[in-house]
């Protein structure tokens, strides 16, 4: 369970830092201006929601699952 949490945090922060600052580990990866919203608290919620939706989609499409219906 702890490893799952670790992986989730790595994925979310990968997504947020890449889009919000344009850098990973200090190396600048995108040209142009980054999306500021991803670094704000609102971006955290949006990143988690979008990633949850993406994982549900992969589950439904490729593994025949029904998706987590959530709380």
């Amino acid at each position: 369970m702890g490893v799952g949490f670790l992986l989730a945090m790595v994925v979310i922060s990968f997504f947020r830092e890449l889009l919000g600052k344009g850098e990973l580990f200090g190396y600048s990866l995108i040209a142009g201006n980054p999306l500021l919203i991803m670094i704000l608290p609102a971006g955290g919620f949006l990143a988690v929601g979008l990633l949850m939706g993406f994982f549900n989609w992969v589950d439904m499409r490729f593994f025949g699952g029904k998706g987590a219906s959530g709380v």
């Binding site: 704000l40 609102a42 971006g43 949850m52 939706g53 959530g70």
Partner: peptide, 23 residues
């Protein structure tokens, strides 16, 4: 709501939009 987003994912996105307003 699209099927992958039903339930909790859409609620998170909603919370993100409200948080944006609170910014």
């Amino acid at each position: 709501v699209p099927a992958p987003f039903k339930g909790l994912p859409i609620s998170f996105i909603l919370a993100g939009l409200i948080a944006l307003a609170f910014t």
